[in-house]
Amino acid sequence: AVCQRCQARFSPAERIVNSNGELYHEHCFVCAQCFRPFPEGLFYEFEGRKYCEHDFQML
């Protein structure tokens, strides 16, 4: 399997985020606008991209 964002493979010891069947490295699972991790894992999706609450409100 490969990361949805960076397309790199996962190492066996690595923590992986699964979002609706899409797999991400922990450091790749970030807001599409500000590139920060999601507070408490909370995000909003718009047109296939994931956003933090602040950036989602700015759309």
Score class of each variant (00 low, 15 high):
48 G>M: 04
18 N>C: 10
54 H>R: 14
2 V>Q: 15
28 C>H: 10
32 A>M: 09
5 R>G: 15
20 N>Q: 09
58 M>R: 14
22 E>R: 15
20 N>T: 10
55 D>I: 00
53 E>Y: 06
13 A>I: 02
28 C>K: 03
24 Y>I: 08
56 F>C: 03
12 P>T: 12
24 Y>R: 06
30 V>L: 11
33 Q>F: 15
4 Q>R: 10
18 N>I: 06
46 F>G: 03
37 P>E: 13
41 G>S: 06
26 E>N: 04
48 G>C: 06
2 V>K: 13
23 L>C: 07
59 L>Q: 10
30 V>N: 06
5 R>M: 15
41 G>F: 03
42 L>M: 13
38 F>S: 03
47 E>H: 13
57 Q>M: 11
46 F>Y: 14
17 V>Q: 07
20 N>D: 15
29 F>P: 13
55 D>W: 01
35 F>C: 14
3 C>R: 00
30 V>F: 09
5 R>L: 08
21 G>H: 07
57 Q>T: 09
17 V>R: 09
14 E>G: 11
42 L>A: 13
54 H>V: 13
23 L>W: 08
19 S>E: 11
41 G>L: 04
28 C>V: 01
57 Q>E: 11
39 P>Y: 04
7 Q>L: 14
57 Q>A: 10
23 L>E: 07
19 S>N: 13
19 S>A: 09
1 A>T: 15
15 R>Q: 11
10 F>I: 13
37 P>W: 04
59 L>P: 06
36 R>H: 11
37 P>V: 07
54 H>W: 08
23 L>H: 15
26 E>G: 04
57 Q>G: 14
46 F>P: 00
31 C>W: 00
23 L>F: 10
34 C>A: 01
50 K>I: 07
5 R>P: 02
7 Q>Y: 09
32 A>N: 12
32 A>P: 02
54 H>L: 11
21 G>W: 01
31 C>N: 02
27 H>R: 11
51 Y>E: 02
44 Y>G: 05
55 D>Y: 01
21 G>F: 04
44 Y>S: 04
23 L>D: 09
40 E>M: 07
54 H>M: 14
23 L>G: 07
44 Y>F: 12
58 M>A: 12
22 E>A: 14
59 L>V: 13
7 Q>A: 13
52 C>D: 02
50 K>A: 07
55 D>K: 00
40 E>I: 01
29 F>E: 04
55 D>F: 00
26 E>H: 10
40 E>W: 05
59 L>S: 05
3 C>S: 01
38 F>C: 07
30 V>A: 10
21 G>M: 04
4 Q>P: 08
46 F>Q: 05
53 E>P: 04
4 Q>C: 14
1 A>K: 14
36 R>W: 03
44 Y>R: 11
